[in-house]
Amino acid sequence: MVEQTPEAGIPLEHPVSVRVGFLRNEEYRWFLAHPTMPAIPVDSRASDHTGDEGVLHDVEELVEFQWHPEHDPGTGRKPYGTSELVVDTIPAAGEPLAMGQAIIVRVRDEPAPAPAPPSETDVDVHVDTDDDDDFNVPGWLCPTRFC
């Protein structure tokens, strides 16, 4: 148990609302080991930090991915933290962490790959003197006798 409202020992009057917060064991140990927010490298793939070897792996259920305001594609889709790149985190690296708090990783889309340069296609043209207009394009199916 991480927190309880109202605190233990306080008399309760009816009706009352009681709130109790729990963490999984690995989440609790992660927060003990990380009293401040660890640094997440800018422009690294977001999924690298929540995957099996990532620094946020043990608290991945407390991590929320959001578009950075300057990089929101405006499509209405939510980032999944898979192929997006990290812009920053809330809290920022080095800021104190409260036990069980949510961690926001703000991301941007990975830029589209540059288009491949146009390829030059070699066409083999065979000219002979038999007037049958030979034109051979390797790999193509030609329906006439002139190919």
Rank of each mutant, 00 (worst) to 15 (best):
T129K: 05
P117Y: 02
Y80M: 15
V137M: 13
G21E: 12
A116F: 11
D72C: 02
P118N: 07
P111A: 07
L32V: 09
P69C: 08
D58M: 06
G9Y: 07
Q101I: 09
D128H: 06
P113R: 04
V16L: 03
C142V: 08
A93I: 08
G81E: 00
Q101V: 13
G74H: 12
R77E: 15
R24W: 10
V87S: 04
S83N: 14
D134H: 14
Q4M: 09
M37S: 00
G76P: 10
V127W: 01
V123K: 14
L85N: 04
I90W: 01
V123R: 15
S47H: 13
H126E: 00
V137E: 15
R145P: 14
V55Q: 13
G21W: 08
H49A: 07
M1Q: 01
S47W: 15
I40K: 04
P113F: 05
P117T: 09
G139A: 08
L12T: 02
D48G: 01
F135L: 14
P41I: 01
W67A: 04
L97S: 12
V107M: 02
P117V: 01
H57M: 03
G21I: 01
R24N: 02
V107Q: 00
R77M: 07
V18P: 00
L32S: 04
P96Q: 05
L85M: 06
H71Q: 09
L32R: 14
K78P: 03
E27Q: 15
D131G: 01
D109C: 08
F31M: 08
V2Y: 05
M99G: 05
L62C: 10
G94Y: 06
Q101Y: 00
P6L: 01
P35E: 11
V125Y: 09
D88I: 07
M1F: 06
R19K: 13
F65C: 13
A39L: 15
S119Q: 12
A116C: 09
E3Y: 10
E60N: 15
L97M: 08
V86Y: 03
H49T: 10
M99L: 11
F22L: 13
E60D: 14
R77K: 13
P91T: 08
P38W: 09
A39N: 13
I10A: 11
D134E: 02
D131L: 07
S119I: 05
L56A: 09
D133A: 12
D48Y: 10
V107G: 13
T121Q: 15
V2D: 15
G139E: 05
E120T: 15
F65I: 03
E110Q: 08
